[in-house]
């Protein structure tokens, strides 16, 4: 069982994940249309790159944009969730052991206690996000089973991983559930709203170029200040 789900099934999940994400990016770029979007993506390449990077960085830094600053509690929940969700699995020592033993790849690792707190942060933030979704009318009307389903899939590996790490109940079951839910998350990413894993970068780059060139980004170029 363990060999199968961390062997062929893992390969399959990774393949679907990478091919799916790559396809998303390719299709996104392919579907850009300078005429329809009325954005000259390639004309002012320097300004375009500057705008794209500025947009990416501003939105990735906590409280880096106005929208982050007007909702500080949500911003904290958001970063608590996303920082943990990205860093904990990538640098978990137990994952590194598998990488090392299977493929001989050595990666830097976090102390287990840090990864544990990040995981708890992810779970707490997810609960907070769900509560917010139910109590604020402006997001409640947007909340469908798609949103809740995506959140459930995304959080499941962290809950099961936490149970396995702390050996609550049958830790073998929790570990197997953790692996399977992690693989389902990988598979689900290209097919669900979780595809924002790559599409966030695509849309930020696109909007960054738009604002960096056309919508005021080049306003002072050639103009008297």
């Amino acid at each position: 069982m363990y060999q199968f789900i961390t062997g062929p099934l893992l390969w399959l999940s990774f393949t679907i994940f990478f091919v799916g994400c790559f396809t998303h990016v390719v299709l996104y770029i392919k579907d850009l249309d300078e005429a329809l979007d009325r954005v000259s993506y390639t004309t002012h390449i320097g300004w375009a790159i500057r705008g794209a990077l500025w947009s990416l960085i501003s939105w990735m830094v906590p409280f880096g944009t106005r929208s982050w600053r007007v909702k500080p509690v949500y911003t904290l929940m958001f970063y608590l969730f996303h920082i943990g969700a990205v860093i904990a699995p990538l640098f978990l020592s137990a994952h590194a052991v598998i990488l090392e033993s299977r493929w001989g790849i050595s990666v830097p690792t976090l102390p287990d206690v840090v990864a544990d707190w990040l995981t708890v942060g992810v779970i707490v933030a997810a609960v907070g996000v769900v509560i917010r979704r139910f109590i604020l009318p402006e997001v409640r009307i947007l909340t469908t089973d798609r949103e809740l389903g995506a959140l459930f899939i995304a959080v499941a590996p962290f809950v099961t991983g936490c149970m396995a790490y702390h050996q609550v109940g049958d830790s073998t079951y929790w570990t197997l559930a953790h692996i399977l839910s992690g693989e389902l998350l990988l598979v689900a990413i290209p097919f669900t709203k979780l595809s924002h894993l790559v599409l966030f970068f695509c849309s930020r780059v696109q909007i960054g170029i738009d604002f960096g060139t056309k919508r005021g980004g080049m306003k002072s170029v050639g103009m008297p200040v």
């Binding site: 809740l148 389903g149 049958d170 079951y173 389902l184 689900a188 669900t192």
Partner: peptide
């Protein structure tokens, strides 16, 4: 439109099924 929910339900079924099928022992 319902792919997320479908995946989520699949995951629950998977875990419940595994729990039932898995004759695990408390270590």
């Amino acid at each position: 439109k319902r792919v997320e929910a479908t995946f989520a339900i699949l995951l629950i079924l998977l875990c419940v099924g595994m729990r039932l099928a898995y004759t695990g022992n408390e270590k």
